[in-house]
Amino acid sequence: DDEYEGGVTGQRKYTRDFLLTFSDQFNDLPSGFEIGPDMVDALMSGHVAASHLVDRDSY
């Protein structure tokens, strides 16, 4: 079990505080994201769910 002591060198470790510094910088969906319409309402937060439902031909 000693191989685990102190962690493995070369690992990309990021602390919570470091990761949280990026929390509000990335609000667009990641590239290549696709989801079935049946999942949108159940899983996606309001902003995206609404954008999927907008009828752009309304005007």
Binding site: Y14, L19, F22, S23, D24, Q25, F26, N27, D28, L29, P30, G32, F33, I35, M39, L43, M44, S45, H47, V48
Partner: peptide
Amino acid sequence: IYTFSTVQEFWSLYNNIH
């Protein structure tokens, strides 16, 4: 749903799901 491999992709996903 999605596979992510960077910090940026994580937040892009997390910020858009409930």
